[in-house]
């Protein structure tokens, strides 16, 4: 499973949009972390998505694309409206790609 994160918006929106996506591949990470990533992805997908989030002024938005053996899904969240599961997935991706 490959997971990639792009970040948009924020006070520095034009700069954020130009930075490369952060990408993780479960084949290239320790089994324990890969398991954690799969569980968090499952939790976020189970919540379903829906509509564009609230437009907080200067809030950042996050698009996470999941590609699992040809099946693709995209979920989004923002600083002012994200679920606990989305927040946990986001911080795992950020930590693993620093």
């Amino acid at each position: 499973m490959r997971v990639s994160l792009t970040t948009h918006g924020g006070l520095a929106a034009p700069i954020n949009s130009r930075r490369p996506p952060r990408t993780l591949d479960t084949d290239r990470m320790p089994a324990a972390t890969a398991g954690q990533l799969r569980r968090l992805v499952a939790a976020v997908l189970a919540e379903g998505g829906g509509g564009r989030p609230d437009r907080g002024r200067d809030a950042m938005t996050y698009t996470i694309t999941i590609d699992d053996d040809g099946r693709a899904a995209t979920v989004t969240g923002s600083d002012t409206s994200m679920s606990a599961a989305f927040g946990a997935l986001l911080s795992l991706i950020e930590r693993q790609t620093d």
Partner: peptide, 11 residues
Amino acid sequence: GRRYNNAFWDG
């Protein structure tokens, strides 16, 4: 957040 690159107003 951790190493968060932003500031915002949430309403």
